[in-house]
Structures are given as structure tokens and as C-alpha cells.
Nucleic acid binder design. Structure first.
Lengths: 195, 195
DNA sequence: GATAATATCATACGAGGCGTATGTCAATAA
DNA sequence: TTATTGACATACGCCTCGTATGATATTATC
């Protein structure tokens, strides 16, 4: 059946554009990605892009929203399957670092995203991950496991440390060894939270 | 005296280009800065730019190197005038955060720089600040003030936390209140380092 | 079931930015 | 004084982006 309902066709077009852009942004980067090229690779033209996303930045937002939703889902799985809150939180941080090691995330979410869309702490999407972390920290506070600090502040500072550690690891000569050192240092800092 | 030695003329040209680019990059951003425009604002053309810096990226590198040298000098002053090593280190971290609050540094060094030149941990310049922090941590380790961890790893993780905290503060609705919360959370993490 | 209306997407056009190739002029060297 | 080198400007073509316009198919209306 070549023809499905109109809504499905539209959703498919949007999905194809997002997928093509994601591939292009993730490899050559946002600035180097030609709209003519990657829309053509999806069997479309820039006309479709401008119709659905307004401009190149709009498409980047859509790509980031998609990636971020995936990240959020992955974090959720990790944090909920641990047997203690603290353990779940630490696992979540580790998963955060591991995700930030992926080239696509580094390029699109951590480098081009901030440059094009401004500071990530203002994005509606990035807040998802931060909020997840914030909630866990709040519970740990209520539980009495960690010291009394502002949960969101801690979440932001910790995520910053994670992301930075990840980028250092990913771009080092010996990622294996660097990872060990970074995780150790990171855990030492986290211990500062414990009572 | 309109004409000075040739070397001085060249140095002046380079300085004018760097200054003009720094202004443009710091306000409208790297991507939006037109080479024709900001070279003209320095009384020059793109010809001079290509001759001295190769291309637009080369000029960005020069601008970042200049800013980074300034940051390094400021950090050095802060860390050396404290009466204890630990105090100097904490002050240095605070100064780091305060510098990262400045719009020019945020835009050029923290956002556009990484997007255009790749991960900062690979830059020769950024390493200056990290190395300063690493050295201090190493001394603190030798002194027995902090636990035994890899000094560079700790420096990188901490700087990541600082930068992230700074960006959160700078872009928040109430920077004053946010700053208090962030600094408190940050200090809690630092306490994790102490024996 | 025919027509009108609307939305989706393609095509065509103009503007601006980048990089290179070339030219000019001044300063140093011989 | 002349030759040479290097600093910088000018001119050109290519590519990319955004908009305005146009074609086509689907849904709505009667």
C-alpha cells in the first residue's frame, strides 16, 4: 500500500528529515552540513524542511529533542533498577558519562547545540535529564543520605563534571586509562555529598 | 611619526584584527560575524586576515589564545596570594567560576570555541588553566591535605563543574540567588577531596 | 460525487559570505 | 639605485541560505 493517511505521510516526512539531519549533524557537524545535501539524501528538498521546521536551527532543535528523549529514557532505566537510591544515583551518573562518550552526542548535544541554540540549561529538553537527576537528589536528601543542599544546584554541578569528564575521556589518547582515572576522581567528589 | 618599523606595523595589524574579531565574536558570535564587516571596522580587508591567520578559524584560535592568556594570568594572581594551598585552590575555583560568568568568555571560549575548534581539552591554550589547577592539586596531595587521586583528572572534573555552574548562573533569571546555591553545592563537592 | 479549500512539498530567484587568485605598493637588501 | 620580498587590497566564482512562488494531492463542503 503506497498511500497511507495524510497524517502518517507527514509524520514520515518529518521523521525522514530528522533522521537525515541527525546523520549529517552527527558526522560533519552542523555548520558543514548542507541542507540541500541531507534533504536530498532523504529524497526531499529544502522546501519540506522550511515548511516543517522553519529553518536550520528549528531542525537542530528537533534533532536534539529526539536525542535527549532517548538519553532520558536510558537514564530512567538505569536509575530505577538499582536497589538503593544512592546506588541508583551513582549508576545514573556513570550512565551519563558513558552516553557523553558517544560521538553523536558529543558533537550535536555538547558542542554544536550550545553554539547554535545557546546555553543548554535553558533548553526545554536538556531539563529532562537534569530534572531526573534533581528528583533523585531530592529523595536522597529527604532520606537523609546526603547533606542538605539545593538539589537542582547539585544536579547541575554534577552533570557538568560528568560531561566534562566524558569529553576528556573521549578525546584522550588512551580512553581506557583516562576513564579509570576520571571515574575515580568523579566518585571522590560525589562522596562529598554523603553525610 | 606616521611610519614606524615594519615589524611594529605588522604587530599592530595583527592586534587590530584580533581585537576587531574578538569584539565581533563576543557579541554576535562566530557564525554571524562577517569577515568583511569586522575587518572593515579595523580599517582593513579580508586580504590582511587571510595573509596573517590563514582563515576564519585561525583568527578564532588567536582570539582564544589571547583570552586564555588573560584568564591564566588572573588565576595565577588569585592562587598565589592566598595564605594556604587549600585556600588558594578554592579561591582559584571561585575565580574560575566568576570568569565564566563573563559573556565574552561564555560565548567565545565556552560555546563557539568548542563547536569550531573541537574539544577544549585538546587546545594548547586551555591546558594552561588546567595545568595551573593540576599543579595546585598535586601540591595539596603531596602535602596530605586531600585524598590520593590523579591530580589532572580531578582538575578536569572540577573545572567542568565550575564551568557548568557558571553557565547556569549566568543564564538564570536570578543570578544572585542562583550563584549562592551553586557555590554552596560546588563547595560541598570540593569537600569530598579533603581527607 | 463534483468542486472548493487547504496543506504539503518542489522550484526558482536573489543576496551574502567564504576562499583563492591576482595585482599593487612600500620597505628592506644588494 | 635597483631588485626582491612581503603586506595588504581587489576581483572573481562557488556555495549556502532564506523567501517567494508554483504545482499537486488530500480533505472538506455541498
Amino acid at each position: 500500500m503506497a498511500h497511507r493517511s495524510r497524517k502518517e505521510m507527514i509524520a514520515e516526512t518529518r521523521a525522514k528529515l530528522v533522521a537525515a539531519a541527525r546523520r549529517a549533524f552527527g558526522t560533519v557537524g552542523y555548520a558543514e552540513a548542507s541542507m540541500d545535501d541531507f534533504t536530498a539524501s532523504a529524497g526531499l528538498t529544502r522546501g519540506a524542511l522550511y515548511h516543517h521546521f522553519g529553518d536550520k536551527k528549528g531542525l537542530l532543535q528537533a534533532v536534539i529533542a529526539e536525542i535527549d528523549a532517548e538519553m532520558f529514557a536510558r537514564l530512567k532505566v538505569v536509575s530505577t533498577r538499582a536497589d538503593t537510591l544512592w546506588r541508583g544515583f551513582v549508576d545514573e551518573c556513570t550512565a551519563y558519562i558513558e552516553m557523553a562518550l558517544e560521538p553523536e552526542i558529543q558533537r550535536i548535544v555538547l558542542r554544536d547545540g550550545p553554539a547554535v541554540l545557546g546555553d543548554p540549561s535553558q533548553w526545554p529538553s536538556q531539563s529532562e535529564c537534569i530534572r531526573s537527576m534533581t528528583e533523585n537528589l531530592q529523595k536522597l536528601r529527604d532520606e537523609g543520605t546526603i547533606v542538605a543542599i539545593d538539589a537542582e544546584a547539585a544536579a547541575r554541578v554534577i552533570s557538568g563534571a560528568s560531561l566534562h569528564a566524558a569529553q576528556w575521556i573521549a578525546n584522550s589518547d588512551d580512553p581506557e586509562a583516562t576513564s579509570k582515572k576520571a571515574v575515580k576522581a568523579f566518585n571522590v567528589l560525589l562522596d562529598g555529598l554523603l553525610k
